[in-house]
Write a protein that binds this DNA or RNA. Structure first.
Lengths: 209, 209
DNA sequence: GACTGTGAAGCCATTCACAGCT
DNA sequence: AGCTGTGAATGGCTTCACAGTC
């Protein structure tokens, strides 16, 4: 790792490249060019090479990249050569869907606990794990070494549970609530805002036509 | 509307500003400055003013913005002064969660239909609406004037249902599947990639520390 | 005095184009 | 000959700083 600041867009693309390479491995493909990756994921080949260049030289000039080698590098760069444990706060529809989503486990993310404030949710089972009360937060984060908090509570409760997550030692937050959260500078925050996404579509439908 | 190309980041922020203004209206606030909006949503005040400047002059120098007036402008700019009808393809956990999500209706989005390929999902009720077979796609899109398709099927089926959606007349796609979709240039596509989001967190946890 | 609206400057990401390997 | 790796050029978004208005 050599560069100082990596563009977020680059990191997102690396994740997508890695998934594409995984597909190629499944298909038994051994070698790939930046141009093929580019076509596969819908970016330019220069972009692919620039993105990779932040982290080293992984290809062979005149030849291309060995699929499995490049995949291994990307997984390591993305921090996916280990498992991460997450906690979900909010066992509503969305929280439950995420808890049961297979795609996470496949990429190295465990859901270590799922908590909710509502008494009638507590005790219900979501696959392997049982919904527990919010009071369990600090204990579960501690004992299961949880670094990622996933917030799927209503907007009105989002900042409060976020503060508690951070206080309990979580280092990164994935926020699904429609609220702008304030977090200290050493905590990583990403927002997955469903309404904003739909509204960008609505804007474009309205504006381009 | 005067400018030609509006940055996507600007559109996303407008959506967030509008939500913040909605909160202010609920709180009975009548007037607001770009600086207050900026603090409320975590951007700079110059950014707020520049974003608004793409679309006109909505404030009063030396005074600020009337909350309700600005809110009205933003809703109109975002195309939220009308209702939009969406169809959800895939009645799995995520599709069901989205179908039942209250936040969409609140911002003017109806779910007109939800379809699935699996016989044991068809006929089940999600709130008001019933899961129907994929064959109903063209008919429902036609009769309910649906412009937005929401894709929540597994990666392996994503491109196929997307093609059908577009063939049936959908103008915009919100893709939740972990697949890069190819769509014609006149169709608007947005991706909400849950794994990518988690992997960006993982990268940052790994890289910054 | 306060705050908006905006041209100019600065900064960052993407694209170009080609030197460097195999 | 083919494809990577990369400095230079381009393009676009954000920040700055101040003129304009109330």
């Amino acid at each position: 790792m050599k560069a100082y600041k990596i563009p977020e867009a680059t990191v997102m693309r690396l994740s997508i490249y890695s998934r594409y390479l995984h597909q190629l491995i499944d298909d038994g493909v051994k070698s790939v060019s930046s141009d093929e990756i580019a076509h596969g994921v819908g970016v330019s080949s220069a972009q692919v090479r620039k993105d990779l260049a932040y982290f080293g030289e992984f290809g062979t000039r005149g030849v291309g990249y060995k699929v499995e080698v490049l995949y291994g590098h990307l997984m390591k760069i993305l921090g996916l050569d280990r498992r991460w444990c997450a906690i979900i706060i909010g066992a509503g529809k969305l929280g439950s869907a995420l808890a049961l989503y297979q795609g996470f486990a496949a990429r190295g993310f465990n859901v270590g606990a799922i908590l909710d404030a509502s008494p009638d949710k507590i005790g219900t089972k979501l696959g392997e794990i049982e919904v527990e009360p919010l009071e369990m937060m600090a204990q579960r984060i501690e004992e299961k070494n949880i670094t990622i908090g996933i917030v799927t509570v209503p907007a009105s409760a989002a900042q409060e549970v976020t503060d508690k997550l951070i206080e309990s030692g979580v280092k990164a937050i994935l926020n699904f609530s429609p609220r702008v959260l304030k977090v200290p500078g050493n905590v990583i925050l990403r927002n997955v805002d469903l309404s904003v996404n739909l509204e960008v579509l609505s804007f474009n439908l309205n504006y381009l036509k």
